[in-house]
Design a protein around this nucleic acid. Sequence first.
DNA 1: TAGGCCATCTGGTCCT
DNA 2: AGGACCAGATGGCCTA
Length: 249
Amino acid sequence: MDSDTGSTCSRSSTPDLPMDSAVGGFFSEKMFQAYCGDEAGPIRPGRPRAEGPQAASSKNRNRGELSKENLQELRLKVNSRERKRMHDLNQAMDGLREVMPYAQGPSVRKLSKISTLLLARNYILMLSSSLEEMKKLVGDVYGASQSHPARPVVPQLPQMPLHPLAQSLHSLVGNGTAGGPSATQAPHSPPSAGYLGFHAPPPLPSLLKDPLHLTSSYRHFPGMPCPCALCQPLPATTAASLHSLSMGK
DNA sequence: TAGGCCATCTGGTCCT
DNA sequence: AGGACCAGATGGCCTA
């Protein structure tokens, strides 16, 4: 990369920053500038400017009246804002990754953005479905207690039909179409977008080989036996508990 | 080496 | 008018 100070921060816009460090939990612009060692990167040379019919907006007309210095100053300011915006977006993405039921750690490659979003969507769907099933089961237990008032009512969670429910949730998350060899793949690779996509296009074989496929309808990931809360002895449906489970923190 | 992923720059558009 | 948001373009890094 040529003389772009932004490149100084290449691959580091989502460093291992403490989420609670900066005001509002985000990496402040000043921090970022200090991190990058520059206020704003110079204009990247060699990039073709968009010229033609689109370049006739009022703002562009105004720019014609600006001096070169002012124009460059404005450009740097806008670039800096855009960088900050993207860094905030990445921070939010990191926050989302942290609560995803997926193995995390230094030896685990970070989920890509698209994978994070798709996994988050599936995770929300799974939790919603789990909540509905739980409501139904609680309703059943309550109804049983009404019909047998003499017997002590113990919500027999361990004896609950976990497996079918878990299976359904697994198929919800794992969409069993993702057949394919995988157990021999790298143990620390994140799930691919193809696998994670709930309505994703037909997954490419290369997109399916990352996660360990240990069951017929769900893929388990290293470091995390099963993200499905219903597979745990005690339901832990909150993201925090799942996070602690997966992180071992 | 090709492809995926990413950061950054940039201009256009929308919103306040 | 200025800022936020968006999408296209570009180039770097990394992995299979």
